[in-house]
């Protein structure tokens, strides 16, 4: 099976200057776990995920011990989120994008997702423009 058979043709994306608060709202509304970041031509230049936003809020927790002792109070989290809410997502997005093409196989995508621990991958055309996303559930539901 090829990616074109199970791609979710949803082009929901954000731009580099989208604010963190807008990205959170869009993640909530779209049901996606990450959002491709596109330039003016629709080329994928980054990805911003729930995890990237959590890392921006709690770098010690995500990058170090993942221990409750590194979790601050919720008040501190809310304050921190207010601080970065107006920041452009470019500051927190992942710039080394791992993407797949419509002609790639399901096996290739599954391997990539497992090895890299990714829930979702952008699908791009020959010019690197976004044509959809593949989620882990899209693969699982077709097994």
């Amino acid at each position: 099976m090829k990616v074109r058979d199970f791609v979710r043709r949803d082009l929901t994306a954000v731009e580099r200057d989208t604010r963190v608060s807008q990205a959170i709202k869009l993640l909530e509304n779209s049901g996606l776990s990450s959002l491709p970041v596109v330039d003016d031509e629709g080329k994928v230049v980054g990805v911003i995920s729930e995890r990237d936003i959590i890392r921006a809020l709690l770098p010690e927790y995500v990058d170090m011990l993942r221990s409750p002792s590194f979790l601050p109070s919720l008040d501190r989290l809310t304050k921190k989120l207010r601080e970065i809410g107006d920041h452009p997502i470019e500051r927190y997005m992942v710039k080394e994008v791992i993407s797949v093409r419509l002609e790639d196989t399901d096996l290739y995508v599954a391997d990539l997702m497992l090895r890299k621990g990714l829930k979702q991958l952008p699908v791009v055309d020959e010019q690197g423009r976004l044509v959809g996303v593949v989620r882990r559930i899209d693969l699982l539901s077709r097994l």
């Binding site: 043709r9 949803d10 082009l11 929901t12 709202k25 869009l26 509304n29 779209s30 044509v131 959809g132």
Partner: peptide, 9 residues
């Protein structure tokens, strides 16, 4: 239905 979507929420 095979339609690509690009909506604003």
């Amino acid at each position: 239905r095979g339609v690509s979507t690009n909506f604003v929420w």
